[in-house]
């Protein structure tokens, strides 16, 4: 059998390091040994595909719960999932979660004294189209305080989970909003060494895809690892 074609490796400074002292929880949760490099086998170049039609209608709309509208600024978040060569990634699962417009998560350990919204859960899922497109309707999340350091606030963000075509394309990240004054002070955002890699996590306001009298719109494209050009040779 011919050897499997692997995936290209990310450059080190396009992802955060395991240990980033400014984000205190990394101190005890980062391995001390360097990871062991392995060449890609069938295990790494395959991965879960979600062509099973398990999603319910409405999972792409976080702005309505039991027919009632959530509080806050209604927005669309849409874009495409592509690989590094610009090829669309079709039928891949995207999962998102976020706090409400006031900056509060519907989660027992969130003690931020901001109001919960009975009409907002903050969880959504979609599968990309044949062209790699996706679209969510949601509420613009608020900023929220956290205990990392004195007066620490997270810039507004939506958590995004994406599979892509292989085990090695799996990525979980956070999407931010343009011009947030909190970027400067956020160790999670700033843990990414490369400036342009950091800026790629900031969505873009897009007037063309807004809906008059209904919702603003932000664009956010995902780029996952591309395929090696030639099969791995011993």
């Amino acid at each position: 059998m011919s050897e499997p074609v692997g995936y290209r490796r990310d450059s080190q400074d396009e992802h955060p390091p395991a240990l980033y002292e400014g984000y205190k929880s990394t101190v005890l949760r980062s391995p001390k040994r360097l990871p062991i490099k392995i060449n890609h086998t069938l295990t790494e170049i395959t991965g879960p595909l979600f062509g099973h039609g398990k999603l319910q209608p409405g999972e792409d709309d976080l702005s309505i719960e039991n027919g009632e509208e959530a509080q806050g600024q209604r927005i669309f978040v849409s874009g495409r999932v592509l690989d590094e060569d610009g090829r669309p990634v079709p039928r891949t699962l995207i999962e998102i979660w976020q706090c409400n417009a006031a900056g509060r998560y519907r989660h027992p350990i969130d003690q931020h004294p901001a109001p919960l919204d009975p009409n907002f859960v903050g969880q959504g899922r979609v599968v990309t189209s044949d062209e790699g497109e996706y679209k969510f309707t949601t509420i613009k999340p608020g900023a929220y305080p956290w205990g990392n350091h004195y007066n620490a606030w997270r810039p507004a963000h939506i958590h995004f989970s994406l599979f892509g075509p292989a085990f090695v394309t799996r990525v979980i990240t956070q999407m931010y909003f343009p011009d947030d004054p909190l970027f400067l002070f956020d160790p999670i955002f700033n843990s990414i060494p490369d400036e342009s890699a950091r800026q790629r996590l900031v969505s873009k306001f897009d007037l063309d895809s807004t809906k008059p009298d209904f919702a603003l719109s932000f664009k956010f494209n995902f780029i996952v690892r591309g395929r090696d050009a030639t099969p791995f040779e011993e």
């Binding site: 955060p16 979660w97 958590h159």
Partner: peptide, 23 residues
Amino acid sequence: MSEFGITASQTVGPFLKIGLAQG
């Protein structure tokens, strides 16, 4: 050099179960 830069990883944070723990 890739034509498109990859999307960087960020932490799942403390509230991951909201998005990821169904079923």
